[in-house]
């Protein structure tokens, strides 16, 4: 009897271990996908203003060092053409340039938890890096189908000492290519505060790329749509590209 119990215990333990290993493997693959070495793209961002109007911006975006550095410059509309944001060290340092006053201003590091200009994304949401791997403990919750695609459902529990961006995230990743299709972000009260939906996933230069992303903020009852118009992963940043000088260009 005792032996049987030990075998059952070992089996359960091994199963749990295997599940954890699977979760880590999936999250590693997701992190690799979401953090290409370099990337250059153009796209649109549509927000809903506080008086309920829809406003669309066009921007060009550059990312380097697996998402550790990024530069986003707005190109349309004319009102903000040239305004740019530079994030360094996984969004720990954020700089912004105002073409109208020709001034560069630094935002504090903890601004990375703030929303990126009117959108429902935070600077941290936008940045890549290995946040999922370093600041969370993944747990495999099972398989679920999203829009006809079989997905792994992974729960990411934040490690408090690592200052995670959210206490908990639930992520659905496609089994076919590890591409994430949905992320539910939870706040400290266990409320699903935001949801990110990724769609129109196309294989571009070997990377499954979601050309449409919608972030829904359940608290503010708002949503932000990001659409990628052009993207390449073959771009290599010139030396010192992610600097104040590039910001002002």
């Amino acid at each position: 009897m005792k032996t049987k119990l030990i075998i059952v215990f070992i089996l359960i333990f091994s199963f749990a271990q295997a599940q954890d290993q699977l979760a880590i493997k999936i999250i590693r693959a997701v992190t690799d996908l979401m953090s290409p070495e370099n990337m250059k793209s153009t796209g649109t961002q549509t927000i809903v203003t506080s008086s309920g109007k829809t406003r669309t911006f066009e921007f060009e975006s550059y990312m380097g060092g697996k998402g550790k550095s990024s530069l986003t410059r707005y190109t349309k509309p004319a009102a903000i053409r040239g305004q740019a944001f530079l994030t360094l060290n996984n969004a720990d340092d954020i700089w912004t340039y105002f073409p109208r006053t020709k001034r560069v201003r630094k935002l504090a590091s903890h601004a990375k938890k703030q929303k990126v200009q009117g959108s429902d994304f935070t600077y941290e949401d936008m940045g890549g890096g290995d946040v999922f791997l370093t600041k969370f403990i993944p747990k495999y919750l099972g398989d679920e189908s999203i829009d006809g695609e079989t997905c792994w459902k992974i729960e990411l529990i934040g490690i408090p000492e690592q200052d995670p961006p959210y206490p908990k995230i639930v992520l659905w990743s496609r089994k076919s290519d590890y591409s994430p299709v949905k992320l539910d972000y939870f706040d400290e009260h266990e409320y699903n505060s935001k949801t990110l939906l990724l769609s129109d996933i196309q294989n571009i230069e070997g990377f499954p790329t979601a050309l449409k992303m919608v972030m829904i903020d359940h608290k503010e009852r708002s949503r932000t749509k990001m659409e990628t118009l052009e993207v390449t992963y073959k771009w290599t940043p010139p030396k010192n590209f992610f600097s104040e000088r590039s910001l002002k260009k």
Binding site: T49, K53, I80, R100, R105
Partner: peptide, 16 residues
């Protein structure tokens, strides 16, 4: 200048 930058941030931020 501060107010102009505030205005730009508000425009981008959708704070009408």
């Amino acid at each position: 200048m501060n107010l102009m930058e505030f205005q730009s941030m508000a425009f981008l931020g959708g704070q009408d």
